[in-house]
């Protein structure tokens, strides 16, 4: 019997099987045909240029959030506040255009501001963590609520579009927005920027000396400290970098997808990013695959609902089940060590 539980173990694979089985069961419970659902899902997420555009438009926010999570988790910072940092990036991007009146030149400025806003949004949590010993988990969750309230305030107050009845920001004019590259689709340069950021983060983490130090500090803070690395400095930079990536994601969401800020805005994107990071083995390149999977699932689920009668919310359930399977797998692997 003992051999069954040591070495290559079948237990984790059982959890992946259970996650897949449950997903199919949900389709059946909803009265849908698994084959028809899968067909609708694939057709409306990757099989045509407009479908691919829809998936790619969803990829930007998720991938930037996932990269924010990868950087934070690799550096040993449990940043659960990506959701809020993403929102602050969105606010910054929606504010810069109308405020500066620079026209087309405001776009890069808006991106810079959104990254900066996301990084600044981490400062309270970083400070509480390093000088007050408050776990970042608690402070970032609370800050998520504060930043969601900031969106509520911004779209009703300073950023409100006076032309409309709804509390939302003014639309981003074409020349300041990131527009489509392929007419008739939603394919913009934004998702490719996210892919480039993923490649950049991979190089940084695996091929540079600061990346090595960061991973060392994340893997074992004590060892890193005794090797003469400043763990506080590293963790603070990791926090700021993670927030910057999340903020950039929020800014690109406003500039390339929604063209406005409204309330609630892109709910759950930050949390989906955390899921994508875990599904992608906390690796920037893995995060590309998992984020695309989540984005395609989100894009295809609407068609699945229309054509197979399966509620689109299944696009949130499947990644959550998969994450639970991955967490079990990881826990099992660490138990063996």
């Amino acid at each position: 019997m003992k051999r069954l539980f040591t070495g290559w173990s079948w237990i984790p694979w059982l959890t992946y099987g259970a996650a897949a089985g449950l997903s199919v069961a949900l389709v059946l419970i909803a009265g849908g045909s698994p084959a028809a659902s899968a067909r609708a899902l694939i057709e409306s997420s990757v099989l045509s240029a407009p479908a691919l555009g829809e998936s790619l438009s969803r990829l930007t926010g998720i991938l930037f959030s996932a990269l924010a999570a990868v950087l934070a988790f690799r550096g040993g910072v449990l940043n659960i506040g990506i959701e809020g940092q993403f929102l602050m990036g969105g606010i910054a991007a929606a504010a810069i255009g109308p405020m500066t009146g620079l026209g087309a030149a405001s776009m890069p400025l808006a991106l810079l501001a959104s990254a900066l806003a996301g990084a600044l949004a981490c400062l309270p949590a970083a400070w509480l963590s390093e000088s007050r010993g408050v776990p970042p988990v608690l402070s970032t969750i609370l800050l998520n609520l504060v930043f969601a309230a900031a969106v509520t305030w911004a779209v009703r107050g300073p950023l409100r579009d006076p032309a409309g009845d709804y509390p939302q920001s003014r639309p981003i004019p074409d020349e300041q927005a990131i527009s489509t590259m392929v007419p008739g689709t939603r394919i913009t340069p934004a998702p490719f920027l996210a892919l480039a950021a993923a490649a950049g983060l991979a190089v940084f983490l695996w091929k540079t000396s600061p990346g090595l130090k960061l991973r060392a500090a994340g893997d074992s803070p004590l060892a890193a400290k005794s090797a003469g690395l400043s763990d506080v400095k590293i963790r603070t930079w990791v926090f700021l970098g993670s927030g910057g990536l999340a903020g950039l994601g929020g800014g690109l969401e406003v500039l390339s997808v929604t063209r406005r800020l409204y309330d609630p805005f892109a709910t759950g994107t930050g949390y989906s990013g955390i899921a994508a990071a875990l599904l992608g083995a906390t690796d920037p390149l893995g995060a590309i695959l998992s984020s695309f999977f989540l984005a395609a699932l989100g894009a295809g689920s609407r068609a699945m609902e229309r054509e197979a009668g399966v509620p689109a919310a299944i696009a949130t359930i499947i990644p959550a089940l998969a994450v639970l399977a991955v967490l079990t797998h990881r826990a099992w692997r660490e138990r063996g060590q």
């Binding site: 899921a275 875990l278 949130t316 994450v323 826990a331």
Partner: peptide, 18 residues
Amino acid sequence: LRADPILTGTAWNLLAAG
């Protein structure tokens, strides 16, 4: 199973929302 509690909680929030 000793999975990370924070990440388990995050996944649980997503699962319940969905």
